[in-house]
Structures are given as structure tokens and as C-alpha cells.
Design a binder for these strands. Structure first.
Lengths: 294, 294
DNA sequence: GGTTTTCTGTGCATCAATGCACAAGGAGGC
DNA sequence: GCCTCCTTGTGCATTGATGCACAGAAAACC
């Protein structure tokens, strides 16, 4: 049953009873309609219509086709209105991805977004691998640093994550708290194991302290935070994660050079939709309220 | 939502994930597939797919289309198999039409046909107006006499209905029973009111008796039979209707010149189908068993 | 890292589907 | 009974869709 257009033509003929009427509705010449019917009947091997001077009367097979195509047309009409509408409505899925480090910053934003637009189902994906927007894996990605500029992606700055040097209270009790960089010698530090990390504070730390002062390193950011909290050494944490934790002591206050920019990345095709725009507005509005951000 | 073929193309792309794969399945060039998708998206005003080097990933709208078109394809496949099969199977409706006069001759034939092919729903239509086969009003028509030869209709002789002159016993008791045509003067007759009737016995009667001898006339054949039974006069009846009726007395035995031929008429398009052929075979077989027919 | 494969995308030539004009035939109205 | 309108049906010209060839890019594989 290839060639769905011929079925649509036959449907209109069965519905209206005449070739001429179907041709007018379909916006084609009546000769085209006749040829479609002839081709369809030839392929099916049985007559769909009784031809006579007043028009075409559907046979039993033609009435069967009429019923099936009727529902098909309705289904397609509903589909079209759904698709046409969904670019302009805020509903359906919204897939957001980000690095795990800012998950607790974003979660309340997305919860309130979902409350504001109840028709939206929010999916928040965090994973080690970078989700690819051009594969349609997510509508919006929250990325850190100045990553590669891919074409077809529109990038907007969101906020600057402020970071500071912290130590666990247990560490301070054992080794003291250096008041400034001059007092770093003899202290132990926690740093990313990835030499090519783009995080500016980790690059600063590697450049500032001796390699043997890095007592603990890990690839996973969450593991680094755990290490600092466990007293393994002095390490960087984002201010918003450290704030309000009584077990942490601030060693050095945040500096502008340690800040890492947070970018919003969307695919150009999806960027224009109302759903994505609504989320971007909501996200930027929420980011203004973020404390601990530059 | 015009152009169902483009929906079918988009369906295959959504199903397979690549333009090339869809093109192969559809048996067209991949450029055609791309153009179909582009046209469909442009008309819908929103993207159905995310394009990338590995293929096309359906968006939410594309997945919606996939689901709708999936069921459509299945529906069309079922439709096609039904239509292809129904020309070769004996099932569905069988619409038979005839003059009312032979209804009680045909009814047992059609009942046994329905018992032989339980999937067939028989519709037996009798009406004053002649049903038109070329309008698809019936599959098979049983007609009397040598009616107009319409093109596209295949005509086959079925049987010859024998007719004889009868009178009600009540009539004979009052007026006697003429032994031959010579004794007709003084008797009363029942005849069709239609001067142009094609029934040969009515033409014979009008030519044989005086006009004022026709005491009762009617257009409806059934009314004529009722009149004869009620004793209004001597009249023609088909042998099969009169037989076994103790209230009727045969006035003159059947003659060949009074016989009217019964024809089977079918439309040429439907004549070839197994369903109609099966009925024709069944009908002719039953007609062989008909007594009282020439 | 280089090579191969696979996929998309586009300009150009071709072909088939479409539109047009006209014929024929039946139905309905005056 | 004649005329008119509406319908189907077909040969021919045209246009629009299709196929082809090639480019380019990304992924996979050795």
C-alpha cells in the first residue's frame, strides 16, 4: 500500500461521489483524480468505484477505504494542529542537561518552572559525557567555561560561579589556616587530577603551589569536594556549595580570576520555540537572585 | 495537512533515523526524501528532525508524527489486504434485486446460499423502480423479459417462467369454467392495467378478449393475483405460484408463448468477482431444480 | 593519524505526473 | 422534444518532482 496520496484522492471521491468534486476539493485537475483512482484500483486488483454518468459510487471496498481514510484524515489534522501549536505553546517535554556540579543550583529553578507551566514535563539530565544538542538529546544545556563554539548552537552567558578556597574544620584543627598565599608552604591541597582542566581556579592552584603539596587529586568534581570535607587538604569549592556548611572554613575569599562563567547553550532550531524561550527567561530571572555569583 | 506521501516519507525517516535508509525503503532517491522533509517542516512551521552527520533524530513533533503514521500504515496495510482478498473470497455483502413476483422463488435460493457461505450477508431488494446496477445499487439483478441492453451489463438467461390461466374456485362456482378460448365470451378477466406491459401473457389476453371483458385491472402484479384469488375474474398466474393452491382452478394449461424469460444481469466489473460467480453458479444450479419452469 | 565509509546537501538534467483542451454522453429543466 | 449543464474520459504540451553526480563533513576503523 504505497502512495498514500492516491488513497487520499480515492477518499475524497468516495466522500463526495464525483471525480469533479474531489478534484475541486483537492485542488487538482479532474484528470489527475481519474488517474489516481485507476492506478489504485489496478494495484489493488479490484474496483473501488462503480463509474456512471452521475459520478463514482463506492463499492464495498470503496466504502471500506472511505471509513479508514476518514479516520486517517482526522488523525493527520489533529497531528498537524498539535505540531503547529506546540511551537507556540509551553508544553511537552523540556530536556535540560548540565554538569553535575550545578545540579543543586538548577533544580529549584526547574521545579518552579514546572510549577509555572504545569503542562511541561521537565527532564534534567546530568552525566559525565557531554550531551549533544545537535543530536536532539536536550533542549537546553548549561555548560561551564568557554567551550568549543559549535555552529547551529546559540550561546548565552548565564552567571559567573564564584569559587573560594576552603578547608575542613578538622584540617584547620590539625594543620592551621593559612592567612594568605605566603603561608601556603607546608600545607596540603586538593586539586583536579585533570591537567587540562578548564576550571580557572584549578589552573591557578597548580601554578601557585608545589606539585608535591597536592595531597589528593581526583577526576570527579564531587570526589574533590568530598575530599575537602573529609579534611584531606585545602581545596576550591564554589561559594554556593560551601555556604552554610559549618564544617568548612574559608581560607581565601573569592576572587574574580577564579570565577568560571556559566553558559546557556541551545540548538538554533529549538531556540526560537516558546517553550525554550520561556525557560530561558525563567532561568535568567532566577539567576539574578542567585547569591554567591559574580 | 495535504500531501500524505510526505507524511509517509517523514514516518520512515523517523522510524529509521536516516534519510538514506528511508530512501532505500521507499524506493526513491535520498534527495527526494530531504525535499519531502523540508517541504513538510516548512508547511508545519516547526522542525520534525534534528539534522546531524549520523542522520536525522526526530524531535518531539517528529516522534508524534511517527506514532500517528505508524498506526496509519498498519490501517492501510489491513485495508489493502482486505480489499485484495475480498475479490477472491466469498464474503461481505451480496445485494440481489428482482421483481417482486419471483421473490418467493428466489428466497429459498438465497437462504441456502447464505448457509453455504456464512460470511456473506445477503440483501434482497425488491421495489417498483428498477435498481440500477451501474450505480452500484446491487451486485445481481433478476429481471423478466427482454429489457433494454445496457452496456457494461452482462446478461445471462436463467429460466422461463411458465404461466397459465387460473380462476378461483368461487368464480367457477358462479360462472363456470371455460374449456377453451372459444368459450371465453361472457367471462370476466383480470389483466394488467399497463397497456405497454412486456408480459407476453397479458399482451395475449388483451389481444384475445374484448376490452369490456376485463372486469378488473391493476398496475401491481400482486394486486392482480389477489383479484384472481378473490374471484374477480379469470387471470394469468405463474404456475409456481398457483401450484398447490386448492382455491385455484386451472382454466387453460401453460403454453410456450406465455412464458416470460428470466434474465440474470450483473455489472461487468462485479461479474468477475468470486462472490458474484459463486452466487451465479448457486442460482443456476437451483434453477435446474425448479419445477413449473420451461 | 590516516583511511574508509556513511551520511547529508545541492545544482543540473531528465522524466513522469499534472494541467489543458476537447469529446462524448447522460440527466434534468423548460 | 430540445437544449443546457454536469459529468467522465483521453491525447498532447508543460511543469514540477525526481534521479544523478558530486561535494563536504563527520564518524568509525585500522
Amino acid at each position: 500500500m504505497e502512495n498514500w496520496d492516491e488513497i487520499r484522492t480515492a477518499f475524497q471521491v468516495a466522500r463526495l461521489g464525483t471525480v469533479s468534486g474531489a478534484a475541486e476539493v483537492l485542488g487538482v485537475h479532474h484528470a489527475t483524480v481519474i488517474r489516481h483512482i485507476d492506478a489504485l484500483e489496478k494495484r489493488l486488483g479490484s474496483k473501488l468505484f462503480q463509474r456512471h454518468a452521475r459520478g463514482y459510487t463506492p463499492t464495498e471496498a470503496g466504502r471500506d477505504l472511505l471509513a479508514v481514510a476518514q479516520t486517517t484524515e482526522e488523525q493527520f489534522a489533529h497531528l498537524a494542529s498539535r505540531i503547529k501549536g506546540q511551537g507556540e505553546t509551553v508544553s511537552g517535554e523540556l530536556v535540560v542537561t548540565s554538569i553535575a556540579g550545578v545540579a543543586d543550583l538548577l533544580t529549584p529553578v526547574m521545579v518552579s518552572f514546572q510549577e509555572k507551566w504545569p503542562d511541561v514535563r521537565v527532564r534534567f539530565l546530568t552525566d559525565m559525557r557531554v550531551f549533544r544538542l545537535d543530536y536532539g538529546e536536550a533542549h537546553v544545556a548549561i555548560r561551564a567555561g568557554a567551550g568549543p563554539e559549535e555552529p547551529d548552537n546559540v550561546v548565552q552567558p548565564l552567571a559567573r560561579i564564584r569559587a573560594a578556597l576552603y578547608a575542613a574544620r578538622s584540617y584547620v584543627d590539625r594543620f592551621g589556616r593559612p592567612g594568605s598565599e605566603e603561608e601556603f608552604p607546608g600545607h596540603r591541597f586538593v586539586c583536579s587530577d585533570n591537567e587540562t582542566t578548564r576550571a580557572p581556579f584549578h589552573r591557578w592552584l597548580r601554578a601557585t603551589v608545589q606539585p608535591d603539596q597536592i595531597a589528593y587529586s581526583a577526576t570527579e568534581p564531587a570526589a574533590l569536594e568530598e575530599a575537602v570535607l573529609a579534611g584531606a587538604g585545602i581545596g576550591f569549592m564554589s561559594v554556593f556549595r560551601a555556604a552554610g556548611n559549618p564544617d568548612l572554613v574559608e581560607v581565601l575569599p573569592p576572587r574574580a580570576e577564579w570565577e568560571s562563567p556559566l553558559r546557556i547553550v541551545t540548538h538554533v532550531d529549538l531556540h526560537r520555540t516558546r517553550k525554550v524561550q520561556a525557560f530561558l527567561v525563567h532561568l535568567k530571572e532566577a539567576a539574578k537572585e542567585w547569591k554567591f555569583c559574580g
